[in-house]
Amino acid sequence: MDLRVQLPGLNLKNPIMPASGCYGFGREFSELYDLSTLGAIMIKAATPMARFGNPLPRVAETPNGMLNAIGLQNPGVDKIMNTELPWLDGYDVPIIANVAGSTLEDYVHVAKTICEAPNVHALELNISCPNVKEGGIAFGTCPQTAALLTRAVKEVSTVPVYVKLSPNVTDIVAIAKAVEAAGADGLTMINTLLGMRLDLHTGKPILANQTGGLSGPAIKPVAIRMIHQVYPHVNIPIIGMGGISTTEDVLEFLYAGASAVAVGTMNFVDPYICPNLIEQLPATLAKYGLTSIEEAIGRSHR
């Protein structure tokens, strides 16, 4: 079965890719399988300068999910340009570069720099990271600010720009429409849900950052609902993510309106999950009477 999907800037061999922040720059997984089998790779967020991230503990388990507060740890955009992206160029796989920062100028600088890499085929504007004090989610919870940032990045980027939406908002449709009007080429959704766990002995939050982003199968229904909600209101494609662990999950995301999907947390549990899903997807599509990916996209709306 033909699994190819065409999206702005991206000719995907298949609709499966690892999500940003759950895959580093792919090095650890390249020891396990050929990265060229992936539809694309969403690399770890880049900021202008290197960031160590938050104090430990940074993760805590939850029922069917996990909380994380890594805090955008990354080696900085220049090092990513000079070492990680050239290394990834050895694989036949398009890269979606996640762009982050504390100020509008940070985002513009990173976007302008990283889109010059030949294998970066699209940007993912991270206006939804809940684990940094400045920037991140602050840009993604207000339609006007999100639009302003999208417009600024669109002006400097030579590749299509996808905006990663936060689920921690009252009206996600308003944000989606605002970034589309500002020129976004696509949406990726959803980022993590803000959460907290307390230590029963100390009574204090387990995470040093106190709050963290909830991910994993626990958030899948929220992601499905939000994609389903946004899809009829926009004319740009959606890459869906949030707790995907099976090919049935992939199908549900496509039905809701996603044109491709990203796998996040489950890479930590089963490092082979992406190639396994790619291999199993045709059989699952056939099982539900589908002959192409196209037929599945947005099926819930027809």
């Binding site: 759950c22 580093g24 290197a50 503990p57 940074r58 740890q73 890479n267 930590f268 490092p271």
Partner: peptide
């Protein structure tokens, strides 16, 4: 340390170098 992946991908269990504070 608390870990998530155990293979170096998630960045949950990092520590800093004694001399070079940019190195982890």
């Amino acid at each position: 340390a608390r870990m998530a992946c155990g293979i170096g991908a998630c960045m949950a269990c990092v520590c800093k170098d004694r001399q070079d504070t940019d190195l982890y």
